[in-house]
Design a protein around this nucleic acid. Sequence first.
DNA 1: GATTTTGTCTACCATTTGGTAGGTGGCCAC
DNA 2: GTGGCCACCTACCAAATGGTAGACAAAATC
Lengths: 197, 197
Amino acid sequence: MATGTSDRILDAALASFGSRGYDTTSLDALAKQLDIRKQTILYWFPTKDALLGAVIERSATELAEAFEVGLEGAGEGWAKVEAVVRAVFRLASRQPELLALVREVSRLGPPAATKMLVVLDPLVQRASAFLEAEMDAGRMRRHDPRLLLLAIYSTVIGMVTEVEVLRALGEEPTARSLVRRRADVLGLLRSALKTEA
Amino acid sequence: MATGTSDRILDAALASFGSRGYDTTSLDALAKQLDIRKQTILYWFPTKDALLGAVIERSATELAEAFEVGLEGAGEGWAKVEAVVRAVFRLASRQPELLALVREVSRLGPPAATKMLVVLDPLVQRASAFLEAEMDAGRMRRHDPRLLLLAIYSTVIGMVTEVEVLRALGEEPTARSLVRRRADVLGLLRSALKTEA
DNA sequence: GATTTTGTCTACCATTTGGTAGGTGGCCAC
DNA sequence: GTGGCCACCTACCAAATGGTAGACAAAATC
């Protein structure tokens, strides 16, 4: 929330890229919304692509931090999974744009998607290794850890960003509903993963 | 694969809307690809929006049919879930564009998303009722049936269309891999839903 | 055989878009 | 106080885009 112009631009761009999409967001519209001129945007970010790049970089870092924070106090085993899911849902309620951006970037494909993944890859690897270790130790049902990750990723992103599908299912996307969705995701994961032991 | 011009346009539009996205698909590009002029497209479909509408209508119907066919021979209980998942994955290997379009349309939001949902809504209701009945009968672990549906939807669509994330996980999107992903989804669902009984 | 309809085309057009060129006022160092 | 830099601006532009107007040939209709 710095008052710097470039930060304001990044904030607005993040919101717009996430909600309207990258290619339907015009620099003019963005500028108008900020009550500045398009050339000011182009002063700070030489091209629209560069702006996207900057938004991705900042967001990916923020995302990674949120994960780290979520993991900090977490215990071991299942508690760790729960901590991460809770961290993502906390993010979804505080900065929904961030998760919307993830969705959009993954849709845009390379090079944007690559840029984001480079930052998040270490987390992915850690998560994958963690799941595998848990399975080896018999504390979680055995699945392909990477495909399991994809399933978790898709489900969580879906629960948080699939506004239209939610509406179709009669679930209004309110804050209260978000809590229910979190509980549900955790319930599903628990029954899918937790062993009786 | 009819040779009619309007069908050729619909085919190309479906593929392009799904893979490149609606707003990055220009009528000129579409026309060039079909070796016709843009005005021919606008003769059959008065506006780009109308073209999208027609693509959605045809695709939603096709999608609904695929579900019906998948359900036809299916038994009861868990077998039914398995049949539906298999039907979707079959679709994913034969007409991946169809599922890509679903993803894109849900991103576009209303009125496009509404149009698609109107056609698919009966299926959603049936599925929801089915899951609830299974849970009531104790043949499936209890979860909110609608959120469970969203989770299944997200996971399946993700497994099929999240090319970038798949790559990041070291899973090349080949036909062989698709079979593995199907098996994995079924495995996950089974352990999440099936009761011991 | 004349006429209407159908399908496709050429010729334009207004608007939007990302981006360039270059100016201007304020502020700071010296 | 003046030279230089920073942040932002006005003025433009070329390309692309969705869409209109209307010509024209082939085919169908009478």
